[in-house]
Design a protein around this nucleic acid. Structure first.
Lengths: 337, 337
DNA sequence: CTGAAAGCGCTTACAG
DNA sequence: CTGAAAGCGCTTACAG
């Protein structure tokens, strides 16, 4: 019942607790003989140092926080898994915090993480305008942002080139002969979506096509709203032949709307998503989408975070990674020649 | 930079740290006047008690562990989200641990959680035969199992009636006129799958139909293997008219196999899944499936866990909840009259 | 009602 | 190379 402490192993090994501590941490000088004895006793007693106690002495808690909009969203649950594995391999645990993009949740969670002395936090997008808070917080522990740009706050950031992603989508659709297109975006103040749309428009623009802003629609970021908005578009007077959706959820909504309207994809309508979540492999037709280099992004962000723990790096990096087109079944040639 | 401690508050308020502590925790007697003063100072100094320090004094860490096979699997990510929300509302954080059903990962994680003095752990299925370990661990902190039966270890369990789920699936298919059926199961030593299959067979048995064991196939629990096995079945001499799959992933694999073979679902083949994950709403056709009362299960498990923290309840509960049939598009009348 | 003191399980100078 | 002692930020009897 009672946990065995450093005192138990010290007594058992006939040394002081300081020596046990040194033996464990490889600090100071401990003779090999004593060290081996101590290690042996530790094993015999199944001694595990208390992270709590050593954290109180200013050591790390070996715990990091992960702020994401929603773990149950496949895109973020994949991020969570990657973070977890990286963290685990370095001896860290991760506390998952779903913010629903609500500032008050962000704030509450950060306060909580602060109280628990986490070593650092990874912010995986979606923190509204809590940047101020991040600023406030940065004094306490390092922060690294994944897939999210921030204004006015000096933190490491690992980003996807969203603008480029939008451009790639545009090029793919143009190549298939599409000329009449529409866009399903997330709320325009989500910076990543904003960039994707900008990139998409730029891609069209380069081909001499201008996308009327009235063909860009803002949705809540879920399947249902994607479906609702897509339905409206498909009912409109000038039905587009292709839809660029700022994430897979919206694209799936569009797929469902098309199905409901009896419009076949990709024959009559092409749909392209963004994120390359597991969902895009499961729909029928499967979804052509833009893949962010997720694993790589998370890996770099994690390494930056861990790095920040040991030495405060004065200059903050801003790393931008390139997205990639993943062609599946939901895009095809334009029905209009 | 330096965190403000209870000493700062005490000094500022002109009282002892003991009084501050009492004021915070509502312990002992503190005059209203002093309490208010202290609270005011706390707010002014933005003081936040250190969870670490109080944990060292034997108080709770307000952190729980969640062991699941894989957070990136939609079924479990939904559980994780529910757990997180419940925990958060009670002031707890949750450390997510994906075990991949590997005993060594389970063991490592439990050790880690132990070192970090988590208050308790929720085991959301999939712990192989680490029951021995659970036993070992139960001395340190309470455990509650979700959707998983355990042998020889006294812990609270909140279960889904998997046998019943299998029976419901059988009844649904029988009602649609199916007589030739096959089953895609997870590994047979996964107790929940085992029960589902048993229930399914029982359902058929009651209708006077016996399911030849050679029509029950074990798969790894992922889309790919579901597809592989389903393909084999569909190529077999006696093609069934319906497939019962022990989880949605396998069902999706089956759906893909059917698509590849040009077999239309549900006209020529009915497919029924289990779990009712978001995936089942996204496929085309959407998936008929058996829904576990997930939110309810998680809620009950969480409450039992929190309850165990304050008073060790001697008798461990075993709660069994009922699953429900969710009819979507992937099941239809048997093509064979 | 309030405070001095001991102690939780560690780590870290500092002597020796 | 090793140990005594102080201290991390709290909580909890125990006096008063």
């Amino acid at each position: 019942m009672k946990t065995t402490t450093i005192y138990d192993v010290a007594r058992e090994a006939g040394v002081s607790i300081a020596t046990v501590s040194n033996a464990i941490n490889g600090k100071g000088k401990v003779s090999n003989k004593k060290r081996d004895e101590i290690l042996e006793v530790m094993k015999r007693l199944q001694y595990q140092p208390s992270v709590i106690a050593s954290a109180l002495m200013g050591k790390k808690t070996y715990t990091i926080g992960l702020l994401i909009p929603d773990v149950s969203n496949p895109f973020f649950s994949e991020i969570a898994r990657t973070v977890e594995d990286l963290a685990h391999s370095e001896g860290y645990s991760v506390i998952v915090c779903s913010t629903d993009n609500k500032d008050e949740r962000v704030e509450k969670y950060i306060r909580l993480l602060d109280q628990k002395n986490v070593d650092g936090i990874l912010i995986g997008t979606g923190v509204g305008n809590a940047d101020i808070l991040a600023l406030h917080v940065e004094k306490y522990f390092p922060i690294v942002m994944i897939a999210r740009e921030t204004a006015g706050i000096a933190v490491h950031r690992v980003l996807n080139d969203d603008f480029k992603g939008g451009t790639i989508a545009a090029e793919h659709l143009l190549e298939k002969g599409h000329r009449k297109m529409a866009v399903l975006s997330e709320d325009f103040n989500v910076s990543s979506s904003f960039e994707r749309v900008r990139g998409f428009r730029f891609g069209l623009f380069e081909a001499g096509i201008s996308l009327d802003p009235k063909n860009i629609f803002a949705c809540e970021s879920n399947i249902k709203d994607g479906k609702r908005v897509a339905s409206e578009i498909l009912h409109g007077a000038e039905r587009p032949t292709a839809l660029f959706c700022c994430n897979d959820l919206l694209a799936i909504g569009a797929l469902q709307a098309a199905k409901e309207e009896g419009i076949s994809v990709p024959e009559q309508l092409s749909i392209i998503g963004f994120d390359d979540t597991i969902l895009s492999t499961v729909t029928n037709p499967t979804l052509t989408t833009i893949a962010q280099p997720m694993n790589q992004m998370v890996k770099m962000a994690f390494d930056l975070l861990i790095g920040s723990l040991d030495h405060t790096d004065d200059i903050k990096q801003r790393i931008v990674l390139q997205p990639e087109l993943v062609i599946r079944e939901s895009t095809g040639n334009s029905p209009i020649k």
